[in-house]
Design a protein around this nucleic acid. Structure first.
Lengths: 131, 131
DNA sequence: TATTTGTTCTATTAAATATAGAACAGATTA
DNA sequence: TAATCTGTTCTATATTTAATAGAACAAATA
């Protein structure tokens, strides 16, 4: 699992780490039961502070993406256990904002939907053999 | 144009103002040539500081959503003048992150696409008579 | 027992956010 | 012309967030 941090980006480092791990899970790069690097090792690899990695791990844990074992470290959960019915409403507001900007910027419905479908296809490919 | 600020939200106030104005433009609530309230009036209406409104206006201006006239104030631009080919790439990264989380949370492709289409339909309705 | 894990604690620095008040130049209106 | 309203700019301050740093802890395990 390769993490790339953009230190110039407006997105905080801990959020970049969190997002890329979620994308790793969705794309199948990270599979159920797989251990993430320890906070110290990961921090050293990326060149950031241990506490910044820990903050990302904490949020991933809070949202059900990973579980923590005292010695094995942070382990990727089963995708089915991440499912959250309440999330749909939460994401709807976000989508409305994103599409409002896209609409004004001239991105057509076809272009936008096509982009979404391609991303979903990518993630589905990574989970062909899931239970 | 009604603005609703959530002071408990993690999204900064200036970003909430900016986003709701963009959604207002997309939905047709705000039309080309329409003036937004002055920074002072708007701040008083919402119950926030003048400089916070000004920050939102500045960003909207930078991204081409509005133009500034010294006396008329902040005026909504023509949508066609907001179009930006480079924005498509910019939004793609965002979409990948959003869908990664949606995928893990159990939102199906159909549900997601359906939601996007409904939003686009809403925005199209507000622009039936555009040039 | 020694090591590795996440976790917790205090501390500090830097940046972002939000507020406050004053003043300015340009455009418009009375 | 004089007054008014516009965004803008300036200094200032307070709060929160982000990121770093180092130390220490309990739990699990080799």
């Amino acid at each position: 699992m390769l993490i790339k941090i953009d230190f110039e980006a407006e997105t905080p480092i801990y959020a970049q780490v969190k997002n890329q791990i979620i994308e790793g899970i969705a794309s199948g790069d990270l599979v159920e039961g797989e251990s993430l690097p320890s906070v110290r090792q990961f921090a050293e690899d990326i060149g950031i502070n241990m506490h910044t990695v820990n903050k990302a791990y904490l949020l991933l844990k809070k949202d059900g993406f990973v579980a923590v074992h005292k010695r094995k470290g942070v382990v990727v959960n089963k995708i089915s256990s991440m499912h959250d019915p309440g999330f749909k409403k939460e994401i709807s507001k976000n989508i409305r904002t994103v599409i409002a900007e896209a609409f004004c910027k001239g991105i057509t419905e076809e272009e936008f939907i096509d982009n979404c479908k391609k991303v979903y296809l990518l993630y589905h490919k990574g989970h062909k053999n899931d239970a």
